[in-house]
């Protein structure tokens, strides 16, 4: 319910916390590690600014907190602050619920698809008129798969859910890019 500028503000606040931590801990990192840390902190800050309301943000946080090297783990802890428990624990439990129910869903979907395929083959044998629509459907399906790979946690979503999350993720990404641009400009680089 909050306006976008305050979302940016929230994101920036958390990100600065993460960057500060990174600044104190990263004297002897090479550039790739630094870049990774910056990106991770930006992602986690974005996700936590979204407050764990959406699936992609929970997925991002869970993924980041499962990261094995301790710097990023501490980074996540630092950014999330006292919300760490709340955001990681319930997300993991709910995501596991989601996972199992979605796996069940996927299984049943597979069955449906198989039966549909059989029917379609039969129909296809009868009529060749449907070929174009089948091609269109296949195209859409392929692109949906690609989109699922892009949105974090998108593998276990159905189509409608995926669109919802995509909208939200897009908006957050836009805000993130905007803030990062401003920071880059502010740190005096020729852009």
């Amino acid at each position: 319910m909050r306006p976008p500028s305050s979302f940016k503000q929230e994101f920036f606040k958390k990100w600065v916390v993460g960057l500060q931590y990174y600044g104190t801990s990263s004297r002897d990192m090479n550039i790739l590690e630094r870049k990774k840390a910056i990106k991770l902190s930006a992602d986690v800050a974005m996700a936590s600014a979204r407050d764990g309301k959406t699936y992609w943000s929970r997925y991002l946080i869970a993924k980041a907190s499962k990261e094995d090297d301790c710097i990023s783990k501490n980074l996540v802890k630092n950014i999330l602050g006292n919300e760490y428990e709340r955001l990681t624990k319930p997300s993991s439990s709910s995501s596991s619920i989601h996972q199992c129910s979605s796996s069940k869903w996927i299984r049943s979907k597979n069955i449906v698809r198989r039966s549909c395929n059989m029917r379609r083959i039969r129909k296809h044998a009868q009529k060749h008129v449907l070929a174009s629509s089948i091609i269109a459907k296949r195209m859409v399906k392929k692109r949906t798969q690609v989109l699922k790979a892009l949105v974090p946690g998108g593998e276990s979503m159905d189509e409608f859910c995926l669109l919802e999350e995509t909208i939200d993720y897009l908006l957050s990404l836009q805000a993130q890019v905007d803030v990062m641009h401003k920071l880059v400009n502010a740190s005096g680089l020729p852009s």
């Binding site: 790739l32 930006a42 993130q176 990062m180």
Partner: peptide, 9 residues
């Protein structure tokens, strides 16, 4: 995002 974080780093 990747590019910007690379730049910052």
């Amino acid at each position: 995002v990747e590019f910007l974080s690379m730049k910052l780093a």
